[in-house]
Design a protein around this nucleic acid. Sequence first.
DNA 1: ATATCCTGGATATCTACTATCCGGGATATG
DNA 2: CATATCCCGGATAGTAGATATCCAGGATAT
Lengths: 159, 159
Amino acid sequence: MGERVEWALHCCLNLAFLGPDDAVPAARLAAFHELPTAYLTKQLQALVRAGIAASVPGPRGGFRLARSPEQITLLDVVVAIEGPEYAFRCEEIRQRGPASGSSGRTQVACTIDVAMRKAELAWRQALAAQTLAEIAATVEHRYPNMPVRARDWLVVTGS
Amino acid sequence: MGERVEWALHCCLNLAFLGPDDAVPAARLAAFHELPTAYLTKQLQALVRAGIAASVPGPRGGFRLARSPEQITLLDVVVAIEGPEYAFRCEEIRQRGPASGSSGRTQVACTIDVAMRKAELAWRQALAAQTLAEIAATVEHRYPNMPVRARDWLVVTGS
DNA sequence: ATATCCTGGATATCTACTATCCGGGATATG
DNA sequence: CATATCCCGGATAGTAGATATCCAGGATAT
Ligand code: SF4
Ligand code: SF4
């Protein structure tokens, strides 16, 4: 799948613990989990392009969630990072070789492709059914002091 | 996902059209869709190791299905080629960084990981619900002459 | 004016997938 | 037995995508 997704999910979750207007610099967000800052920034920018996060430049700037955690699903984050393409992509190998000219109409969607897409739709629906708010609530239930700890460490308390 | 899965599925489907005892050499199976013979052989060997296909050496040998198409699911083929690992693999990045020492017990399964696995289970179940026999029946319904054409081209009629 | 921070592109590295080749073993046929 | 056919497994390149880094430019709060 790609490690970037895990990074993005953790960042979104951490941002969800914060106030809606608290922006966190990418460097601090990366240091929280010892991730490479420059590369994590790319993923954060992808979240911004997808409308999940928002960036604010300048001092006391950084990243924050663009909408409430209740309106952010796991599918949103995964698609923002990995792209909207299906994992199983049909290369239409049936079009090649002796089988090609045999039966005329090869325009119809392939049976194997339909079957694989059906499974991927089930995956997507399961991802879309879970919101960031639900994840945050579960974590807070199991580790009650986790949100406040995250906030204390992430938010710039200077000035 | 990997193009190998598409190749393996097509090979299994073609073998399903044949008689249970008709073995097809890897070279012919590959030529049917203009695939690289040497590399396709690797995937066929993986199917054999998974117990999906069986190989018979010597003249008039080749590959055949190890059990009836009704007992072969799409998940069987996908797992045989891609392995049983989950697409989303947690690297436990929460263990690193300042958050590590904060809350003591990090032995419990992570909330994000559980959520992602729930979605992957839905994917696996959707794959396991579709058998090779159902796929073959659908294809035969839409292209009634496809099975006989495949058989005519694939089966070695020599001697 | 200055320090902070995001933005976008260029670049390098690394991994996994794709692809090929060859020697060895197994089997049917005559 | 001799031979042709075919599978098996390992070794080896080539390639595309993921991972990671760096820098010049632009925006904003103080
Ligand atoms: S049968 Fe399906 S997987 Fe095969 S070439 Fe056609 S669309 Fe692709
Ligand atoms: S919270 Fe989940 S995804 Fe993140 S490190 Fe823990 S198990 Fe992995």
